[in-house]
Structure formats: structure tokens, C-alpha cells
């Protein structure tokens, strides 16, 4: 079974992001970039399927500018067999990414596509679902456990207030939630091997997709700063403030 995994290059989630001075965007100058955490989980799951003998080949795909090849190399170091880079400039919207991934799906004919449920920069939570619609493949979103059984894929989903298990016919799409697995470290011998693995580069035109834009980023601003707390003198003052200033008791 061939598995396609999508990975996205995003700001490292431990980095404190800052808005640009003019509020036009997030400041990405000299900021540490990393693989989107949900995509990392997707790669780990695909590699585990391969280690279990279920998957025969794992292909990592990323859409973006040249530097996102670093994240493809990370996926290759984690155990993916080969990479595909769809080179595209600027801010690519989920719909365009879904169309580009559809192009890759048509080329590669994977039985399973695993994506992160969302990226931590755009927070859109759309690409997997859109890809499902475009390819007419069934989808299991927010997966916390997946298991291939014959021609079926059982997906345990994290839904409000509990878990839901669904069974999908293959080929299918899965988007990962946080508890699906704990990704491994990239071992140094595997990083070296990854350098020799095949990495193909496509343009959107190769996949028959025109990059369009429907969304304009108007403004980025940091959250309002929290006011410093104060120390009250006694219980009476506390009650007074809760009543009259915070208005949380009456």
C-alpha cells in the first residue's frame, strides 16, 4: 500500500511570534522554522504503517518555496521513502494546496493520504477536507487511532465529549490529531541516508493547477497585553472589587 503524507513548513511552535511593525503580516525574518507538529504526527503514522508491513512506500509531499525541502528532508529522515516538492511562491490558500495535492494523488495513486488536521500558522483546518471533496475519497478527520483491516481503514476520531470509530473504504484520507502518536527523533544515520533519497520537484503547471488567491490578509496584530494584577488590602476590598469593578458577583 502506497501512503502519501503532506508536510508543511511553519514557524516553530516554541518561537514567540511577532507582528511586523506595519501590521501587514507575521515577522518571519530570522525565525526558526520547523515541520508543522500535526504533519510530523502524520509522517510518524505513515512510517509506523510501513514498519508494520502495511505500507509499502511512504511519499512525503510539501507545497511552498524552496526552503520547504528542509521539512521534506526531515520527513525522509524520519522514514519516508521519497519526497515531492511542489514549488509555489507566496501565501498559498488551502483550496489551491488541496488542488495541487489532488494532482499528486492522480500521479501517484496512493491508497492512503495522511495530513495534519491543521497547520499552526494558518489554523484553517481545511486542506484535508477539501482534498476529500476534490478526489471523492472518504475522510477520517481528527484521528487518534487508525488501523487497516483488509480493504477497510478503521479510524477512531476525537469528537466533542468522546470518541467515534468509523470505517472507511480505501483509498482514503486521514487527518491527524495530537494523540495519534508521539513522533520519534530524526536519527543522525537516517538524516544522512535521507540526503540520498529521491526528491522530485514539480511546478503547479506540471499538475495542471493555476495558483489563484481569494483571500487578502488585511491586518495582523498581537493580542492586547494583560494588565498587571494588584494586591488587595483585605477581604472587604476584594469583595468590593469583585462586585463593583469586575462585576462577577452581585
Amino acid at each position: 500500500m502506497k501512503v502519501l503524507v503532506a508536510v508543511k513548513r511553519v514557524v516553530d511552535y516554541n518561537v514567540k511570534v511577532r507582528a511586523k511593525g506595519d501590521g501587514s503580516d507575521v515577522d518571519l525574518n530570522n525565525v526558526k522554522m520547523a515541520i508543522n507538529p500535526f504533519c510530523e504526527i502524520a509522517v510518524e503514522e505513515a512510517v509506523r504503517l510501513k514498519e508494520a508491513g502495511v505500507a509499502t512506500e511512504v511519499i512525503a509531499v510539501s507545497v511552498g518555496e524552496k526552503p520547504c525541502q528542509e521539512q521534506i528532508r526531515t520527513a525522509l529522515a524520519l522514514g519516508a521513502d521519497r519526497g515531492i516538492h511542489v514549488e509555489a511562491e507566496g501565501r498559498i490558500e488551502p483550496l489551491v494546496i488541496a488542488k495541487l495535492l489532488k494532482g499528486v494523488v492522480e500521479k501517484e495513486q496512493p491508497q492512503l493520504v495522511i495530513l495534519g488536521k491543521q497547520s499552526i500558522d494558518g489554523d484553517n483546518n481545511q486542506t484535508g477536507q477539501m482534498l476529500g471533496a476534490l478526489t471523492n475519497m472518504p475522510q477520517g478527520t481528527f484521528a487518534s487511532e487508525i488501523k487497516v483491516e483488509g480493504e477497510k481503514l478503521n479510524v477512531v476520531r476525537e469528537v466533542d465529549g468522546g470518541l467515534q470509530t468509523i470505517s472507511l473504504s480505501l483509498p482514503a484520507i486521514v487527518t491527524t490529531d495530537l494523540r495519534l502518536n508521539e513522533p520519534r527523533y530524526a536519527s543522525l544515520p537516517n538524516i544522512m541516508k535521507a540526503k540520498k533519497k529521491q526528491l522530485d520537484v514539480y511546478s503547479p503547471a506540471d499538475l495542471g493547477v493555476e495558483v489563484t488567491s481569494h483571500i487578502t490578509l488585511v491586518r495582523v496584530e498581537p493580542p492586547a497585553e494583560r494588565q498587571a494584577g494588584i494586591k488587595v488590602e483585605d477581604v472587604a476590598q476584594l469583595v468590593d472589587k469583585l462586585k463593583n469593578e469586575a462585576k462577577v458577583i452581585s
Binding site: 516553530d12 516554541n14 520547523a34 515541520i35 507538529p37 527523533y185 536519527s187 543522525l188
Partner: peptide, 15 residues
């Protein structure tokens, strides 16, 4: 005999 390298700040902290 073997080794790993951090790929993110989170991994650096975990190591």
C-alpha cells in the same frame, strides 16, 4: 554508536 539531532525547539527542549 547512534545519535539524534533536534528538528525543532520542542525537540531541543525534550532532549
Amino acid at each position: 554508536v547512534d545519535g539524534v539531532v533536534s528538528q525543532s525547539v520542542a525537540q531541543a527542549q525534550a532532549l
